[in-house]
Structures are given as C-alpha cells and as structure tokens.
Design a protein around this nucleic acid. Structure first.
Lengths: 166, 166
DNA sequence: CAGAAATGCTTGTAACTACAACTATTGTCT
DNA sequence: AGACAATAGTTGTAGTTACAAGCATTTCTG
C-alpha cells in the first residue's frame, strides 16, 4: 500500500536498511551466528545420542541455581521462553526422570523444577560436548578478552531489549 | 543458554560443574540476547498486525538478491533453516501473494523464490518497524564502531561454526 | 472480612519446524 | 549410450512452540 518506494530497480541496494546500517548488520550477524552455533550444538548432541539442546539448557540452569531448583516463572524468564512452553518442556524432563516438581510451602501457587540425581549425571555427560563445541567455535576465533568484551556488549543490548520487562 | 554466571567459585563436584569460561559466558549472552531481541521484534510486528518475523527475513533477503529472486537452497542456507522448512515457509508467502515461484531454464531442478510487487510493498512497511526496534536495542547501547566490531567477531565465530567439522 | 484484582502455573488449540523418505533432474564413469 | 551417484526441491509425519483461555492461590481495598 502506501507509496511505491518501489523503484524496484534503483533501490536494490540502498533501501535495505538492516543490511545497510552497522546496527542492522550487527543484528544480522547475531541472528545468523546464533542459528549456526545452535545447529552445530544440536548436531553434536544428536551424534552422541543425547537429548536436544533445550534439555541441556534447563538442566544447566537449574543445576546452577541455589538448592538446584528454580521457580517455573524464573526459569522461563532466564531461558526466554513462554511459561506454557516451559511447563511442557519440564513435563518431558520429569517424565524422563531428570527433574521433579516440588512445591512451595509458603505460597502454594509456585512450583519448582528440581534437579534429580539422574539429571545431574546426564548434565555431567552433556556438558563436555557443549563446552567442546563452543571451544571450537569461539576459542579458535576470538581471545578470552574479546569474549568478555563480546559478552559485555551483548548484555548491554539485551538490557534494553528487555526494557519493558526488567 | 548456559548459566547466569553468578557463583564464580563453585566447587566441581560430581562432575556437574558450571562452565564458567569466558567463551561459555559469551555464548550464554549471545543466546539470551538473540532470544530477547527476537521476542521484541515479534511483539512489534504483531502489534502492527504484520506477518511474523520469518516472513520479514525471507522478504528482506530476497529483496537484496540480484533480480530480487533466490534459489531455494541458497535462501535456506542464508536463513539457516532446513530446506523442507523453507519450502513450506515460501508456500505461505506465495499463498499470500508476496512471492512467486519461478524456474530455471538451464537446470530444471532449481526453483527460485521471486519477489512480487506486493512483497516489496509489504517489506517497505515492515522495515521501519524492524529498524526502529533495532535502533532502540542497539543504538542506545553501542556505538556504530562497536557494532562493526561486534559484527566482525560474530562473523568469525560463525565462519568456524559453519565450516569445519574439525 | 468479603469481593475484586493480581500472581503463578497449567491446558487446549493451532501453527511452525525439523527429520527422513521421496520424486525429478543433472553429472559422471565405463 | 546406460547405469550409478549426486544435486535440488518437495512431501509426510511427528515433535515442539506459542498464544490464549482457564484454574488455583494470594494480595489488595473498601
């Protein structure tokens, strides 16, 4: 609708803002790199007959939490997925015997995802696979200092992106 | 996503030690930032009654290509999605009148996703929404020079992630 | 202390995605 | 040529995700 802005033949290379501005290019690189690394991690896990990446993320996050348990809502927020999605994801891990649901005494609305020994064991097996792939992807290309800088810049971007939330 | 990087000195017990390496943290930040920004972009599009983000990515990519058309395989590779997934994604855009399938004379296996005027028009409407959100997320936090550095680091990581099964 | 609003989580439904198997066309080797 | 392998895309099926509605519990207000 609106106006043509078409100039389909002339504006081939200039009207494409995301590909033109430095920030747009940075976002494109971020998206593609995320997809590529994720794909690689999933391949590595599948090759070792391990569960998919989201399982690892849940296990690793819960394992790092105090008492190795987390409220469902907090977990969903950290993983940046919806609560409904997390409910079903945790369902699968519970069914697999890796997590259990526990409940809060003082507030009976909240439920925790709590790590079970089997989950801890599996995590210990999966972590080297993930860490190894990340070593290949990152260490070969950027120094530790650069990695810190990278993390710092990304966290700043995220802080604003989450502006409406955090 | 790995860990929120809180406990800096956690004993390695039972093998379930948190991966507190700089590279691991960089990956965690990358994953969370990607998820957060993606979520924000999708919200912005939904609020304006625009199609979902993958549609935008297809349209923007094809619009940047020569003759505003791309081979299906190349498009899938750039977008880092499977070919089967792309077939169905393009199906939807074709059904919406935004793209059309065209074919190669010299190699009748290949088919192109070709931009239609309606797709170009819609892209012109969606782009400001995306660019605006990216401005908010990036410009407010990092300079253009930093954005270039960010992109450069990410591209290096991706080059390895895509390349060798080293 | 009701009754309304807010919070925390789960479920129903629909849409999207990946994986594997399949068709069709092209390239290669003898 | 003729057979075999490789490439390009599509389709069938199953699993996963998001969105919106729903239930249970807690908090706020008059």
């Amino acid at each position: 609708m609106t106006e043509p802005a078409a100039a389909t033949t002339t504006a081939l290379r200039e009207g494409d803002a995301p590909a033109g501005t430095p920030h747009g290019e940075a976002w494109g690189a971020l998206a593609r790199t995320h997809a590529a690394v994720t794909q690689r991690l999933q391949e590595a896990l599948a090759q070792g007959d391990y569960p998919p990446l989201p399982w690892y993320e849940v296990l690793a996050t819960v394992a790092d939490a105090a008492d190795q348990r987390m409220r469902m809502g907090d977990l969903a927020e950290v993983l940046v997925i919806t609560r409904g999605g997390l409910t079903k994801l945790v369902d699968r891990l519970v069914k697999a015997g890796l997590l259990e649901r526990t409940f809060c005494e003082t507030d009976r609305r909240v439920s925790y995802a709590t790590l079970l020994p089997a989950g801890s064991t599996l995590l210990a097996e999966m972590r080297p696979v993930i860490v190894g792939e990340l070593q290949i992807a990152f260490s070969a290309n950027i120094s530790e200092a650069q990695a810190e800088l990278l993390r710092e810049m990304l966290d700043r971007v995220r802080s604003t992106a989450c502006g409406g939330i955090a």
